[in-house]
């Protein structure tokens, strides 16, 4: 059976070739650059971990930065590679708005996870003792994060 709506669809990728190639190239370079920056930050966090000085806050800041960069990457992939940016506004909304659910979803789950940790640390001292990294300067011991969500995803 033919779709009645089918012939009505007007394809809108009639932008000229060079223009299109230029955009793809630009996006590719952008993605690569962002990835490289992310890797650099990752390595920087590594060196921060190695040093003895307590820099939890700085590390958290960098992690937040990486999350934002990742979101930017996702934006470029979706809007240019997947052509969502070229679609009609309503279409973009039907995709983007449901994803907003993730905000509460992430917040609630991570808050819960943190609450489990607090319960275990308060009422299961053996758990606290065996898993809590020791205070004195070992590498990668500052992994404990404060309660707020880090904007993952």
């Amino acid at each position: 059976m033919e779709h009645p709506a089918f012939e009505e669809v007007s394809f809108h990728h009639h932008t000229d070739d060079a223009e299109f190639k230029r955009r793809v190239k630009k996006t590719t370079i952008l993605l690569s650059v962002i990835t490289i920056i992310e890797l650099a930050i990752g390595l920087f966090i590594y060196t921060l971990h190695k040093s003895d000085v307590n820099r939890d806050f700085l590390i958290l800041g960098f992690k937040g930065l990486v999350c934002i960069l990742t979101l930017a990457k996702a934006y470029y992939i979706v809007s240019v590679f997947m052509h969502l940016g070229d679609e009609i506004r309503n279409m973009i909304m039907t995709i983007v708005v449901p994803l907003m659910l993730f905000i509460w979803f992430i917040f609630a789950f991570i808050y819960e996870g943190n609450s489990y940790k607090n319960l275990r640390n308060t009422y299961d001292l053996h758990f606290k003792e065996t898993t809590m990294p020791k205070k004195h300067g070992n590498a990668e011991t500052h992994e404990v994060k404060p309660a707020e969500k880090s904007g993952k995803e």
Partner: peptide
């Protein structure tokens, strides 16, 4: 009163 008893996560 009521509270679940969960293996691995103490509740109170």
């Amino acid at each position: 009163m009521k509270m679940d008893a969960v293996p691995g996560t103490p509740t109170t």
